[in-house]
Write a protein that binds this DNA or RNA. Structure first.
Length: 437
DNA sequence: TCTGGGGTCCTAGGACCC
DNA sequence: TCTGGGGTCCTAGGACCC
């Protein structure tokens, strides 16, 4: 075991500070903006297909409803405690998230949008303007509550890995009013000593079990482990994170998101599907969606992977999982081409007699969309196909998703995901806007 | 009856090359 | 008949995140 004295341990925590803003129970809070009657009640938001719980209000957490818990397990608790159940509705959540991020950007120019409900604000260099970061944190919190109606927690830290620690304390200890700062070495050390490993960023249940077996229960204990041991059991990524906890390195705030390296669309069917024609329709729709995402980031794909899956929870039914990739003859971002190759793969891996729960498509091997590799036969994508796809994108953006469709998408609805408890898209559909009495 | 969707990175092992 | 080292690329699988 490697031991660090306090001085060497935290010597690298110099002035460079980051603020993490994260929304409390984001999906629930987003619903509450338009449904103030949900305030103070136990509320859960379900995954696509209404399968699992993906967000819980504070009150629902108290009822021991777990993250990711299957909806059907809820049963009695719902009736007994009048739990409000809401199907997920990503369009308004995305819209609310955009508003939140724009507000944060008004405060600080350099922000990293880490997820739909979290952002890092790099306040290095702002020390003259905001001498008291805790007061600044409260100001951000108040503004967001007033302008978008979202409750947020705020962690003020010198390293991103510490952000989750600070935000954990901010939520846990009501007397801090949602804002917690970790800056001085001894305070950081104290915070890590009381911080369970499982709560550390990048430590999940597997690693937590492993650490527990070795007597490592807290983040502080983790910082005292030997580098070689950490890298052996938790890869180089694990070592990086421990090094940041020790204060040795700092991941920079990344203002501009890197383009995605793969794009995936693979929602479950609402009801199982076993015939090829319906599968093809489903796959077509997923490929169309993938193509839209691909063009949005100005990439072209070289590889199309299709996979099929039965319901792995149904041990009583025959299982089938298969996936296959095909390399495109040239990079493409044109939906008609992507469709053609994806369907080819589907036909190759389809086997009748299985109740399939999912057909998915993944695009990968990206190059910039205007990249043209010279080849012997000058085999490039027909530019007209891309132009058609882009025109469809523009029209769909203006008039609504799937207003312009590719013929092969079909109109069958029985495979579409379920969502029984849908709320309205208050902010993005005129027809669903809230009316004042 | 009913168990999410979309991503990331790393590692090991095999195929293949010179 | 026996024998090598170094490199790349790909895939599968496992861990993690929200």
């Amino acid at each position: 075991m490697k031991r660090h004295g306090l001085l060497s341990f935290f010597k690298n925590y110099s002035y460079s500070m980051i603020i993490l803003v994260d929304v409390d129970s984001f999906y629930v809070s987003a619903e509450r903006i338009f449904r103030p009657d949900l305030e103070g009640k136990p509320v859960v938001v379900l995954s696509a297909n209404d399968g699992n719980i993906i967000a819980r209000s504070k009150e629902a957490k108290k009822l021991k409803i777990r993250m990711g818990q299957p909806t059907f397990e809820l049963g009695g608790v719902v009736k007994q405690h009048k739990v409000e159940i809401i199907s997920t509705n990503f369009t308004p959540y995305g819209d609310v998230s955009g508003r939140l991020m724009r507000i944060l950007n008004q405060f600080i120019e350099k922000i990293e949008i880490y997820s739909i409900d979290e952002a890092f604000l790099d306040v290095t260099g702002y020390e003259r303007i905001y001498t008291d970061l805790v007061a600044f944190g409260h100001q951000i919190r108040k503004t967001i509550k007033q302008w978008v109606g979202l409750p947020v927690s705020i962690g003020i830290v010198p390293k991103e890995t510490l952000a989750k620690v600070a935000s954990w304390y901010a939520k846990k200890q009501p007397n801090y009013n949602g804002v917690f700062e970790l800056r001085e070495a001894d305070r950081i050390q104290q915070a890590l000593a009381d911080f369970p490993c499982l709560e550390v960023w990048d430590i999940g249940h597997q690693y937590n079990q492993l650490l527990k077996k070795n007597g490592i229960e807290t983040a502080y204990a983790l910082t005292q482990c030997h580098d070689v041991w950490i890298q052996k059991h938790m890869t180089i990524e694990g070592l990086r994170l421990v090094d940041e906890l020790r204060g040795n390195t700092r991941r920079p705030v990344q203002q501009y998101p890197a383009p995605k390296k793969s794009i995936l669309t693979s929602p479950c069917f609402g009801t199982p599907v076993d015939d090829l024609k319906t599968l093809q329709e489903g796959l077509n729709t997923h490929v169309v969606r993938c193509g839209e995402k691909l063009r949005r980031q100005q990439s072209a794909a070289c590889l199309v992977t299709v996979y099929l899956q039965t319901n792995p929870f149904r041990a009583d039914q025959p299982q089938y999982f298969n996936s296959q990739a095909t390399a495109l003859p040239h990079p493409s971002s044109a939906t008609p081409e992507l469709l053609q190759y994806a369907i080819g793969v589907l036909n190759a891996i389809y086997k009748p007699g299985y109740k399939l729960k999912r057909v998915g498509v993944m695009l990968s091997g990206f190059v910039p969309h205007d990249y043209q590799k010279p080849t012997l036969f000058n085999d490039v994508s027909d530019p007209r196909l891309r132009a058609v796809s882009q025109t469809a994108d523009k029209l769909n953006a203006k008039y609504g998703r799937d207003k312009i469709r590719f013929a092969s998408q079909g109109y069958s609805v029985h495979w579409k995901p379920r969502s029984k408890f849908l709320s309205r898209r208050y902010t993005t559909r005129w027809s669903e806007i809230l009316r004042a009495q």
